[in-house]
Write a protein that binds this DNA or RNA. Sequence first.
DNA 1: TGCAAGAATATTATCGATATTTTTGTAAAT
DNA 2: ATTTACAAAAATATCGATAATATTCTTGCA
Lengths: 234, 234
Amino acid sequence: MPRTYNQQAEPNGAKTLSDQAYLQLRSDIIHGELQPDEKLRIEHLRTAYGVGASPLREALSRLTADGFVTAEGQRGFRVAPMSEADLADITQLRILLEKQALCQSIEQGDDAWESRIVAAFYQLEKVEESEERDPAEWEIRNHDFHEALIAGCSSKWLRRFYGILYDQHKRYRNIALSTEIPRDLHQEHKELRNAALARDGKRACDAIEQHIMRTAEITLKVLREEAHREQEIA
Amino acid sequence: MPRTYNQQAEPNGAKTLSDQAYLQLRSDIIHGELQPDEKLRIEHLRTAYGVGASPLREALSRLTADGFVTAEGQRGFRVAPMSEADLADITQLRILLEKQALCQSIEQGDDAWESRIVAAFYQLEKVEESEERDPAEWEIRNHDFHEALIAGCSSKWLRRFYGILYDQHKRYRNIALSTEIPRDLHQEHKELRNAALARDGKRACDAIEQHIMRTAEITLKVLREEAHREQEIA
DNA sequence: TGCAAGAATATTATCGATATTTTTGTAAAT
DNA sequence: ATTTACAAAAATATCGATAATATTCTTGCA
C-alpha cells in the first residue's frame, strides 16, 4: 500500500486551510501585493491560493472583522482602502495603546521580561548595524522588539488591539519602504530599550511616541508623493 | 404562479444569511442564551438557526475575530469564556478608549453632536424615570446615549474598538442584570450629559470613569456571588 | 477483578463541487 | 437621454464527500 503520510503541509501556525488562506491573504495585503480597493474575486483567489471557496470566504470574513478587507452586502470583498486620514487615525490610536501597554509592562514586568527585551534588542541591533540590511529580517526583528517591550502587560485586549494596529501601520510603512530616508532608527530603539530597562515610564512613553510619530510622518510624506505622481499620470 | 414575495426576512440590517447568523449568534452570546465555553456544534446550530453550514462558519469566523467565540484547530468553535480577569481587562481598556473618544468629541463636536446628545438623553431619561422599566428598551437607549456622546470623535478605529468593548462589557452586565442593586444611574447620566454639553473634558472624563467603574464593580460582585453559589452546588 | 492501552466505531469539522440568487454589463426601445 | 429587457458574471448558499477527533469497546496484563 502506498499511502499517505498526510501532508502536514505548512510549517507556519496554520492548522486548517482556512487559517492558511487567512495568513496568506493577510500577509499579501500588508505587503501590498494585493492593492488597496482591489476586488477580491473568489473564483480568481481559488486558483491563486489553491483552496476552495469555503475556506476562502471564512478567511475573508475574519479579515473583514480585522479591518483588512471590506465586505459589501451581496457584492463580494475588496481590500480595505488606504488614506491619509486612516494613517493618522491608526497612528494616533497606536500611540495611545502602545504607551499604555508599555507603562503597564514597566510596572509589572519581571526578570524574564527584561531578558526578552535585551535579547530582542540585541538581534535587532545586529540587523540594523549590518551592511546589507535585509528588510524582511528587519521586519521580524523590529516586531519582536516591540512585542518584547509590551510583553509584560497583562491585558489581553490591549495586546490584541495593539497587534491589529501594528499590522495596519505596517501596511502603510511597507508602501513607503521603497524610499529610503536617512534616520537614526537604531538610536531611537536604543533609547526605548534603556528607558524600559530603567523602569522610567515617562521617558519610555515619550520615546515611543516620538518613534511612532516619526515613522508615520515619513510614511505620510511618501504616501503624498506617490499620490501626487499618480495624479500627474492621469 | 403564486409566489415568492422573496421573504426579505429580517428587518435588521442583514443582507445575507451569513450576516443574519452573525447578528443572531452575537446577540445570543451577549444575552447569555449561549453560555460561556459552550460548544457550538455546526450541526446543531444549523437546525436552530435554520441556515446552512457555510454561512454559519463565516459568522463564527467573524465572531472569533471579535473575541466572542474561540476556534481551536480542527476542533470547532466554542463561546468565549468569561472570567473576572477578563472583565477587569475590558473595563480598564474601555475606560481608556471612551475617555479618549469623549475628549475628542468635546473638542470637535458640532451643533448636531450636541443635539443628538440632548435627544438621546431625553429618551433615556424617559425610560429611567418610568415606573416599569423595560430592560430591553433601556439597553437600546443607554447604548444610543453612549454612542451619541462619542459621535463627535472622528477616529474610526477608536469607535470600532470601543464598540467591541462595549458589547463585551454588555455580556457581563447582562449576567448581572437579574440582580437589582440600588444605584442612581440616572444621576450619573445627567452629570455626563451636562459635562459634555459644557465642553468640560476633564469633568466628563471623570464622570465616565466613575460610571464605568461602578457598573463593573457591581457586575463583578454578582459574578462572584454566582461563582460562589455554583461551588456550593458542586 | 481492576486498570490501562489500543482498536473499532461514531461524531463532527472541514472542504470542494454544484445550485441558486443577485448583481452587473449590454443592447434595444420608449 | 433614460429606461427596460436580457444575458453573462459573480457571490452566496446547499449538499455531499473526506479527514480529523472524540468516544466506546475490547483486549492484555498485573
